[in-house]
Design a protein around this nucleic acid. Structure first.
Lengths: 134, 134, 134, 134
DNA sequence: GTGGTCTAGACCACT
DNA sequence: GTGGTCTAGACCACC
């Protein structure tokens, strides 16, 4: 797994790292249990401050995407849906709203959008079954 | 058109305003030529610094979403596709990637996502024809 | 509201600050809506790095204890129980277990413990009604 | 007596072990004189570094919870109240404060807390008589 | 003015 | 070796 970051971007570096890890996990390129590069190694590789890498890791741990095992390193967590189905649907709706707004402003047609979604969805590792309420 | 803002949110207020206007335009609730409330009026209504409202308007004008006519007010601009089809597709792909990553982490299934998109897309006013390159 | 911290303690400074704020909120000494000292002011007052204060504030915001309003400062949040009743009961049971274990090792009697709890509970502002499940 | 540890938890493994032993002693599940598994055995069982187990044992010996008899093993110590009643009451008050703060933030009512304490206290083996000063 | 991000580099705790 | 905490001080974004 190769990481990159662009220090000139307006999105914070720690956010760029989070996005990359989250995407790699969502695509199945990082499997649960996989070990991420250590804070020091990655910070050296990206020529970035160790604190910045650490921050990305800490935030993802809080989100439940990563686990850190003391003295051993940082690992991809087992998937776990802590949120209620209601909250999940709400967040999904918000994400879709946001993305469709963008699509309209790009001047695309509904067909183009739907087919692009259908095409890209195969790159992601969704859960097999429908989520059940609780 | 009612505007709201949540000062406790992590997203900047000027951004919240932009999101609302862009969404209303994308849904057809604000038609091209529609007049927006003046900076002064809106800032009083939302109990927000006038500079904050002004910033939102300025940024949207830069994006081509709004037009300011001196002395008359701020208006929704005619839709205009400045970008090449290649750039538009690229941006769309990025937006979809971002949104699908979120969906996977929410623990939803591919079917749920597709049906939610199909459902919500009717609320938006997409261009009729396929976009052509230029 | 006076804050203090002991840099020689083994508990991290940011944790000490969190404990003080959480306790003051729980006792009603800090009411919802109250403004906390700014990061810079408090860090100067405690002779502590601003980052350390900021960290305490950020973590409490994530917990829902504080809200930060951009450019205005940090405020005590309205109480809000996001967790399910089951989780809350579980956490309460864990906290009680932990505290009773401590009490036994201190060599106290059950009566002493119960009466001490009954005495101290009046200093705290509990919600009036019993929490309902959802 | 079964021990467990969760390497993904934020609490250090040696602390997790200490907590388990202290709790088992407080509940009377480990009686004074009972022998604990050797460092070597326990570390193999938990798939943990022997140093980690050793550290837990050493710290508990320092606290007076365990006794190491060279060549024989590690044993639960006789209860001993080294501290003055004043110190004990102070520590109890601190523990209660900490736990009530947590309870308020969980959004529970005072009644719920009191009844939960009353319920759980029966699982612990408190000293019979009131403690006297010395 | 406010908080948010980042760097450089130190020291400590855990395994 | 690993991550966690803290300091000093810079620069930026928001209101």
């Amino acid at each position: 797994m190769e990481f990159q970051c662009d220090p000139t971007s307006r999105v914070p570096i720690y956010r760029q790292l989070m996005d990359q890890v989250r995407r790699a996990v969502a695509r199945g390129r990082l499997q649960p249990g996989a070990r991420l590069p250590s804070v020091r190694v990655l910070s050296r590789e990206l020529v970035v401050n160790p604190n910045t890498v650490a921050r990305a890791y800490v935030e993802m741990e809080r989100e439940g995407v990563l686990n850190t095992r003391q003295g051993l390193g940082v690992f991809v967590a087992e998937p776990q849906a802590e949120l209620s189905a209601a909250v999940r649907r709400e967040r999904l709706a918000a994400a879709i709203d946001c993305f469709l707004t963008e699509a309209v402003h790009l001047g695309l047609s509904a067909d183009e959008v739907l087919s692009a979604v259908a095409r890209q969805i195969h790159n992601f590792q969704f859960v097999a079954a429908a989520s059940t309420d609780h």
